[in-house]
């Protein structure tokens, strides 16, 4: 029994390490966009490690099938929410910090705070919500 202790605990330790670095990254990185990198990537793998360790500890088939479902949805939804947060912040005019202080760092989109792009994104969002019957068309 104790021989397997390390196999069970290692994924939890690795997962906890990545979640810790995510927290450190969110505190240390300079702006919303770079913080999103830390929170989306590191939390996804970190929580995957913790879930895997828990499944090993419970050690029955149901735990592993639930683990697979949880991971699938986590991998699909976490980066999409980062995408939406970054896009909303950018279109509403939050300037990203660019470059490493020695020049460089281009913005190839260049739509920062542009009113027409904001309006288009809003119209698109409203259209989707109306299609789903969540808001009145208008």
């Amino acid at each position: 029994m104790d021989d397997f202790q390390a196999v069970r605990d290692l994924p939890i330790l690795i997962g906890a390490f990545f979640v810790l670095t995510a927290a450190i990254g969110v505190v240390r990185f300079p702006d919303l966009y770079s913080r999103l990198h830390a929170s989306s990537k590191l939390v996804t793998l970190g929580s995957a490690g913790i879930f895997l360790g828990v499944a090993f500890a419970l050690n029955d088939a149901a735990a592993f099938t639930r683990l697979a479902a949880v991971l699938l949805f986590q991998f699909l939804t976490t980066p999409l929410s980062a995408y939406l947060i970054a896009q909303a912040a950018y279109l509403r005019g939050l300037p990203p910090i660019l470059g490493d202080g020695q020049g460089g760092g281009t913005d190839e989109w260049g739509a920062l705070g542009r009113a027409d792009e904001v309006a288009q994104a809003d119209r698109e969002a409203l259209r989707v919500l109306a299609e789903e019957g969540l808001v009145d068309e208008g």
């Binding site: 990254g25 240390r28 793998l45 470059g99 460089g104 190839e108």
Partner: peptide
């Protein structure tokens, strides 16, 4: 790639002076 991305990001979060070099790329 996911594992590589996480190690890369963890090293940057822990680095004393990380070279972030943020940019927006098309």
């Amino acid at each position: 790639e996911l594992v590589r991305a996480n190690i890369h990001m963890a090293l940057m979060a822990l680095h004393p002076r990380p070279r972030l070099n943020p940019m927006i790329v098309e």
